[in-house]
Amino acid sequence: MQTAYFPGCSLKTIDRAYDVSTRVIAQDLGMTLVDVEDYSCCGAGELKGEGLKSHFLPARNLAHLINQGETEVMVSCNVCYHELSRTAYAVKQGGVHLDQIQSMLKAADEPQILEQPTVRNTLEYLVNVIGLDEIAKRVRVPLTGLRVAPYYGCLYQRPAKMLSSVQIAGEDTEHPHFMHDLMAALGATVVEHRAETTCCGGKNLLSDEKISGRLTGRILSTAKSSGADVLALMCPKCAGGLDALQFRAIGTVGESAQLPVMYYTQLIGIAFGHRPEELHVGDMESDAMGLIRQFLSEPAIR
């Protein structure tokens, strides 16, 4: 099965762990990923203040997708997912905004968006198109005994009306559960912690250190005190605050915020029998590698 795929800037560089693990499990599941050609950044949510122009970068990518003969694209990064969905929604609304988007594309010598694009999140795609049964069938190393706290963040389910996870797949906006279901299918113990959709403050990660330290600190310590061994993520921006800058969270709320953090796709990869090195578990700044090594070497905790 051929699936168009948009990795985006951070997955192509420092968050390769998310990209590689997405590709590895996609291959196991019989999917052939075809990258959107000549991609540009999605705008990372930072150009919204420019108004209509904030649609230019996502539209450029969607235009390339359509030009490649595809109308549906799968996206792992939640920020790219949000930006592309937001523009796909503007295309669907049509009217003067769409005209202006098309004329910006024309001015830049880029193809027009000639069909309605559909943007799908990898998590939602795995659950709804591939199916939990298919995924469960591939499990070689059940995650039995591993206590996983799913963390969705914001942009996977908000704003609901722009997103396929909600509109097509019927995900719950207040209490999303596809990652819960997926982790359960891998044999993990799913930890409910009530910070699943709390914001990590990622937008102001650089500019508002205090608030971002408080928000990330709270998420990590809530998950940890609920008994989690690991927080499962789906967004590289969240990874910035919760993993790479976890020291800031610890500095704000203390040791209770020290927790291994991984992409949920890496956990799927481990369950499918891949080595942690292959999935770049060592790229995580928190001690995800230590946790996974211990998990794999101590059948007792399974």
Binding site: C9, K12, T13, I14, R16, D38, Y39, S40, L47, E50, G51, L52, K53, F56, L57, R60, Q100, M104, A107, A108, D109, E110, G282, D283
Partner: peptide, 29 residues
């Protein structure tokens, strides 16, 4: 671990200059 190299090699999209001028144009908000 090689991520720095990946970052250096990220490159630009093709004929980026034209897109760039669209982005830099003032006007629409």
């Amino acid at each position: 671990d090689g991520r720095a190299l990946k970052t250096l090699l990220i490159g630009r999209p093709r004929h980026w200059n034209r897109s760039r001028s669209v982005l830099m144009e003032s006007g629409q908000t």
